[in-house]
C-alpha cells in the first residue's frame, strides 16, 4: 500500500489517540487530581468503577475506537521502523502480514472484551 495514504491515516490516528488516550490516562492516572468517571470512588480499576464505565455506551464505543486507531498507529509505526532496516522483499511482505494478523487478532480480542464487558456491566445492574 502507498505510504502517502497510510502515513496520512497514521497522522490522523495520532490526533484521535491524543484525545482518547489523554482522557483514558486522565481517568486512570490523574484520578487523585481530577477524579473523573470514577463514580464509586476508590481506585479507577476497582470492579465497581469498571462496571460503571462499561455500562455507558460512550465508553464502550470509544474503547473500541481507541483500540483500532491505536493499533493501526502503533503497528504502522513499528512497520516503518522495521522497513527502515532494509529487509529483503520476502521478509518485507512477511513483516507486513505478521503485523496485520497481530493487529486484527488484538482488535478482535479487545472488541470482544469491550462488548462482553458492556453486557456484563448492564446485566450486573439489572440482576
Amino acid at each position: 500500500m502507498q505510504d502517502q495514504k497510510l502515513w496520512t491515516w497514521h497522522l490522523a490516528a495520532g490526533l484521535v489517540i491524543l484525545v482518547l488516550l489523554g482522557l483514558h490516562m486522565a481517568i486512570m492516572h490523574l484520578d487523585a487530581a481530577l477524579g473523573i468517571f470514577n463514580p464509586s470512588g476508590g481506585h479507577p480499576i476497582d470492579w465497581a468503577n469498571v462496571v460503571a464505565r462499561g455500562q455507558t455506551l460512550f465508553f464502550s464505543v470509544t474503547y473500541v475506537l481507541l483500540l483500532g486507531v491505536a493499533l493501526f498507529h502503533g503497528l504502522y509505526g513499528l512497520r516503518n521502523i522495521l522497513l527502515e532496516l532494509a529487509p529483503g522483499p520476502g521478509l518485507k511482505t512477511a513483516i507486513s502480514w505478521l503485523l496485520i494478523i497481530t493487529g486484527v487478532a488484538l482488535f478482535v480480542l479487545g472488541t470482544w472484551a469491550a462488548w462482553k464487558a458492556h453486557q456484563v456491566a448492564l446485566g450486573g445492574v439489572l440482576v
Binding site: W47, G74, G77, L78, I81, L106, L109, V120
Partner: peptide, 29 residues
C-alpha cells in the same frame, strides 16, 4: 521512537490483560 515501541509493547499486553473484565469480577480482580 523508543517511547513509541515501549507504548506499543505495553498496549499489546494491556489489551490481553484487561480482556479479563469480560469474564466477570473474579477474573478481573
Amino acid at each position: 521512537r523508543i517511547t513509541g515501541l515501549g507504548l506499543l509493547l505495553y498496549f499489546a499486553m494491556h489489551i490481553i490483560l484487561t480482556s479479563s473484565r469480560a469474564l466477570g469480577q473474579g477474573a478481573w480482580e
